[in-house]
Amino acid sequence: MDHRSPLERVLRALALTAIVVFFMFPIFWIVLMSLQTNETILRSPPSMSFVPTLKNYAAIISGELDSNAGSMSIHFMNNLLNSVLLSVFSVALALLLGVPAAYAFARHKFRGSEDIAFTLLSFRFAPPLLVLLPLTLYFQALGLANTYLGLVWVYQLICLPLILWIVRGYFEDISPDIEHAYRIAGHGWFATFRKIALPLAGPGIAAAGLLAFIFAWNNFIFALVLASADKQPVTVGALAFVTASGIQYGQIAAAIVMSIAPTLLLALWAQRYLVEGLSLGAVKG
């Protein structure tokens, strides 16, 4: 099967290594930084030899930030929890609304369906800053400002179009004959949606959910404007590390590692769903 010469294989391995190193180096460096004190980080020239310390992680988890100017308290763990809450509920709500909507757009060409789908996509065209001012005013009037509900709602601007458009494509890829066959076998439309369309679009739904989760997790501007300290996610909370007395690189690095860990783990877990091509061999092309 493998017709490649040894030289070709070595070159290929080298190229792959180079690419991996190029993309992974910043993350690798941040992990190293998170295990050092500010002094060793700021050494010149930089060196790889240091005594690893978990002080940064301890400080972040306990919320006691020690700097040369004295100690201050931050709520990073609270921010992390906010990020988890906001992302999970936003994606859950977007899946709940977006997947059935995507199915409707994929299968039922009703009047104006394309226009509605496009309008939903257009939510992503406008720069967030443009909608933020009116949104803030409305939210204050409605009492939604600085509430989880309000934030989850606003996050739908990010998650819903993404899920809708990705999942719609997956639904469209399922041969309508498969669904017709299930209907003709005597099952109602809802059973067909649940037993045929959902499982077959599963990988797509997982991919869209994961992407939406990452976008929601990384969102900065909505939370910055619409949430106060106790509702802020990590993206906004990280601002606290820039203090008057200097920037705590080690602690920032530790915070970054802790804030990318959940998305990374989620991506690794979802990977098996992403690669599973279920539709293969179902119909004869």
């Binding site: 041969s175 004959d177 498969i178 017709h180 066959a181 299930y182 209907r183 003709i184 076998a185 005597g186 099952h187 109602g188 439309w189 045929i196 499982p199 077959l200 279920l278 539709s279 293969l280 061999g281 179902a282 119909v283 004869k284 092309g285």
Partner: peptide, 30 residues
């Protein structure tokens, strides 16, 4: 009358089997 209530058996040209079910479940679906 909706397709599920017409009492019809149909075989498709492209087979249209349910890819995530085994042959038994496919045949058993009606």
């Amino acid at each position: 009358v909706l397709p599920e209530h017409r009492g019809i058996g149909m075989a498709f040209q492209n087979f249209a089997l349910f890819p995530h079910m085994d042959a038994f479940d496919n045949i058993a679906s009606p």
